[in-house]
Design a protein around this nucleic acid. Structure first.
Length: 858
RNA sequence: GGGCGCGUAGCUCAGUGGGAGAGCGCUCGCUUCACACGCGAGAGGUCGCUGGUUCGAAACCAGCCGCGCCCACCA
């Protein structure tokens, strides 16, 4: 080791992530291990496509968690010797990005309309040039081993061509079509949005009862509505066919107040006779349910609320041009005047809101582009049903299947400027859809762009060069794992499966990992607007990237989990402990090869056995997507078994003049530990790896260890287990009797089976074990240990009076245990029906307690 | 309305049929030559409630209470 590195080890008693991380990251990138050559087949290689972050976004806790998970997977695969590519890139994020730029323009006092489409789009590109690199830099800080050399963007020319081609092919297949259909209109963004971009919110409304006179003149039919202004677009009334109150009115006609339109009264199953008056006004133009009913009964479709949120010319003149809220008041007032409002009551219900703008969605009939999903869904359902794609946890397969089995058409077009413009041109009545613009004069291109998630659906293969048959595609598609939070299972995961199968003939990945949602510490959603967000970069600065990674992995066990900074601290402590354990080893060992075969002593064979088991367990947990268990098991095994016990047991030999044998074991132990921990904490492990003797290359590219069951040793584990129990028992005694400082308690070993570990027992418990045969006269107490006890003899270490009190307490405790076990064994049913081993174990314990009690003179 | 998940130590969470666990916090003791981001020893829980299955339930079943999320065209 070079002198300055040696000095660093000697002097630095704390691990300092800030100093290490950038240096280590540069070594990884310099070695090119994140950028595999596109060779071999996807079968033998390994790949993950990152969920592309919004191009102008910055790293939030969800990114940090999912980044930690994916990086762990990629690093394990890479160490297993598979050519591993973590596909990187960013998403143009249509609505989100357009809004950001619009906001920035607003601050300059310009609207996008003043700028014009072309100039506006140029501004967005400019925005991306300025802000687009932020999140990439942040992923580096996290240690993410993404393939940064091969960064994609959903608005790259190649990517746009792939998107266009997919649209054209689906159009040619007849799945994409243009239609007048009821859509979710976002009045804030002035665009149609899909069902998945709508969220229900509970709203306090007024439910109005309105009388609609019958044409026959024989009274009126009363309907209930929370949207009286939409009555101007009513084209029918529906009642339940089973509802006897209204059966005589079916086929009759009502007259729409304020408008005078004739409204047929129809029978439809959808109407709930129990609700309101049991009569439903039908507004096909402004209510999705009414739209369906209207189509079933061939009712007229009238649109009175325009895309600008104002009443259209289809409304009576006095209401035209009014905003919706204004119109509501005006309509109610007009109805009141005519005495047609027969009741009002407060009414709480769920109302669709735009996920993006937060505005109440205005359902209206609009001419949009749609994609029929049923044909695409069928094979995507099959892929999960037959297990070619597996969800982790499994329960999400059901969520996915339920959605696909009831899938509805997808509203594709968005009235935005930033995004993939539809490859559609019109000329009079003609429509042209194609990859290349039409020839001839007079064609006008559809101004709309595609839903952002349309291009996202192509992510795993469009990033690799599809539709060209590229080496990248052959080497890395299909990918292996897709990891994400549950909120985009439908928006993204399902659509990738559908598009993947449709356009490549292959499922896009085999395993879908759905990770926890991390909430704010108080249980609310973590969000910037609520002020509940916690910045992962801030945590990296305070605790280090390894600490953050460990903490996030450790806390992400169930569906939702509260952010717990303590877990990040635990990660920092672990990194520090690892650093210090390494200092102990590396500053003392002889320069020998790491060698588990050098394990001769009991404790050596014990730690080797334990680490082999840990190796097996960790691989199981990593492969089973149980990352929190893996992180915490590694923590526990390293801290307790390795540091608290093995290193303490090995110290005397490490400090001895000839420490070659133990050095071989220690180096092997360290090597194995670093490898197992590397996917969780890549920086600190890589740094320590570089300080180990010998020329060993990068840990990130080192060979992943396979557990060797031949080195499992139950007998040795049991023996050390006994030793640990005995040491703990003696230490407890010391503590209880108030033994002073490091003064040894004198004692006489009166227990079987400690021949080989007598010195360990004495040293770790701070007892002086003497061979004193001078009778039992001065035995102050007997401390029970497995297989016997230790007779305590007078010494300078403590006051005997204290000891007597303690023994009395212990006797009482043992008597209680004996009684409990006796009671259990007296139960005939237990003895007869419980498995023999269980009963036997209970008998064994009883004997043990009796024996211990007897030794204490009870 | 349907579905998923959660309710275990003061806090955040493990534990899915054989005597309640971890980290933090708390108490006591320790300048023990890797680490005070440390070492040692403790205290602390009728495992949401009620029934049931079982020799045995925190775990399995049923019902209830509370909380979170997703899906859904009762105006």
């Amino acid at each position: 080791m070079s002198d300055d590195r040696l000095k660093l080890l000697q002097e630095r008693t704390r691990y300092e992530p800030a100093e290490v991380e950038s240096r280590v990251f540069a070594r990884w990138e310099g070695a090119g291990i994140f950028h595999p050559d596109p060779e071999g087949t996807a079968e033998e290689n390994y790949s993950i496509a990152v969920p592309p972050p919004n191009v102008t976004g910055s790293l939030h806790m969800g990114h940090a968690l999912n980044g930690s998970i994916q990086d762990l997977c990629i690093r394990v695969a890479r160490m297993r010797g598979r050519r591993s590519k973590w596909i990187y890139g960013t998403d143009h994020a249509g609505i989100a990005t357009q809004r950001q730029v619009e906001k920035a323009l607003a601050e300059e006092g310009i609207t996008k309309e003043e700028l014009g489409r072309e100039a506006f789009v140029e501004r967005v590109w400019e925005w991306r040039r300025v802000h687009g690199g932020t999140i990439t830099e942040q992923f580096r800080r996290l240690g993410a081993s993404l393939d940064y050399h091969d960064e994609r963007f959903t608005m790259d020319d190649d990517y746009v061509r792939a998107v266009t081609l997919v649209f054209v092919r689906l159009y040619e297949k007849g799945l994409i079509y243009r239609d007048n259909y009821i859509v979710n209109w976002d009045p804030g963004l002035r665009t149609a949005i899909s069902d998945l971009e709508v969220a229900q919110r509970t709203v306090e409304d007024t439910l109005y009862s309105i009388d609609y006179p019958l044409e026959s003149g024989s009274g009126a039919i009363t309907v209930a509505t929370v949207r009286p202004e939409t009555m101007l677009a009513d084209t029918g009334i529906a009642v339940n066919p089973e509802d006897e109150r209204y059966s005589r009115l079916i086929g009759e006609t009502a007259i729409l107040p304020l408008v005078g339109r004739r409204l047929p009264i129809v029978a439809d199953e959808h109407v709930d006779p129990e609700f309101g008056t049991g009569a439903l006004k039908i507004t096909p133009g402004h209510d999705p349910a009414d739209f369906e009913i209207g189509r079933r009964h061939r009712l007229d479709e009238v649109v009175v609320i325009g895309e600008d949120g104002r009443l259209t010319d289809a409304a009576p003149e006095r209401f035209r041009g009014m905003e919706v809220d204004e119109a509501r008041g005006a309509v109610v007032a007009a109805l009141r005047e005519e005495g047609l409002i027969s009741g009002t009551r407060p009414y709480e219900h769920d109302v669709p809101h735009s996920h993006r703008s937060g505005r109440r969605v205005e359902p209206l009939i609009s001419l949009q582009w749609f994609c029929d999903m049923e044909d695409l869904a069928r094979p995507a359902i099959e892929a999960v049903r037959d297990g070619r794609i597996r969800f982790h946890p499994e329960s999400y397969a059901k969520v996915y299947l339920d959605w696909l089995e009831n899938i509805r058409p997808w509203t594709l077009s968005r009235q935005l400027w930033w995004g993939h413009q539809l490859p559609v041109w019109y000329r009079g009545e003609e429509t042209y859809v194609g990859v290349d613009p039409p020839s001839g004069e007079g064609w006008e291109r559809d101004p709309d762009v595609l839903d952002t998630w349309f291009s996202s659906g192509l992510w795993p293969f469009a990033t690799l060069g599809w539709p060209e048959d590229t080496a990248q595609l052959r080497a890395f598609y299909p990918t292996d794992v897709l990891s994400t939070a549950r909120d985009i299972i439908f928006l993204w995961v399902a659509r990738m499966v559908m598009f993947g199968i449709e356009f490549t003939g292959s499922i896009p990945f085999t395993d879908v990992n759905i990770h926890s949602v991390i909430q704010a510490p108080d249980g609310r959603r973590m969000s910037k607007s609520l002020g509940t967000g916690i910045d992962p970069l801030d945590l990296i600065e305070r605790y280090g990237a390894d600490a953050l990674r460990f903490g996030l992995l450790a806390m992400s066990s169930s569906q939702d989990v509260r952010f717990n900074e303590g877990k990040v601290q635990q990660g920092r402590d672990l990194a520090n402990k690892l650093w210090n354990a390494s200092r102990l080893i590396l500053l003392r060992v002889s320069e020998v090869e790491p060698d588990p075969g050098a394990a001769r002593e009991l404790e050596d064979r014990w730690i080797v056995s334990r680490l082999e088991r840990l190796t097996e367990r960790v691989a199981e947990l990593y492969d089973g997507f149980r990352f929190s268990h893996a992180a915490l098991d590694l923590y526990g095994a390293f801290w307790s078994e390795l540091c608290d016990w093995y290193l303490e047991l090995a110290k005397p030999r490490l400090y001895a003049e000839d420490n070659r044998a133990v050095s071989g074991v220690l180096l092997w132990v360290l090597e194995r530990t670093l490898k197992l921990l590397h996917p969780v904490m890549p920086f600190v492990t890589e740094e320590i790896w570089s300080l180990m003797p010998g020329e060993r290359g990068l840990l990130a590219a080192a060979e992943w260890p396979a557990a060797d069951p031949r080195r499992f040793d139950e007998a040795v584990e049991a023996e050390v287990e006994r030793l640990i129990e005995a040491v703990t028992s003696l230490r407890r005694y010391r503590d209880e009797v108030g033994a002073r400082g490091s003064a040894p308690v004198r004692g006489r070993l009166a227990a079987e089976g400690y021949g080989g570990v007598r010195d360990h027992l004495a040293r770790l418990s701070r007892f002086e074990l003497v061979e004193d045969a001078s009778g039992n006269g001065d035995v102050l107490a007997t401390v029970p240990i497995p297989g016997g006890g230790v007779q305590v003899l007078p010494s300078e270490a403590f006051d005997p009076a204290e000891a007597e009190k303690r023994i009395a307490a212990k006797r009482a405790q043992l008597r209680a245990e004996v009684e409990r076990a006796e009671r259990k064994l007296a139960n005939q049913k237990f003895v007869e029906r419980a498995p023999a081993v269980v009963v036997e174990e209970e008998r064994r314990k009883l004997e043990e307690y009796r024996e211990a009690l007897r030794r204490l003179g009870g």
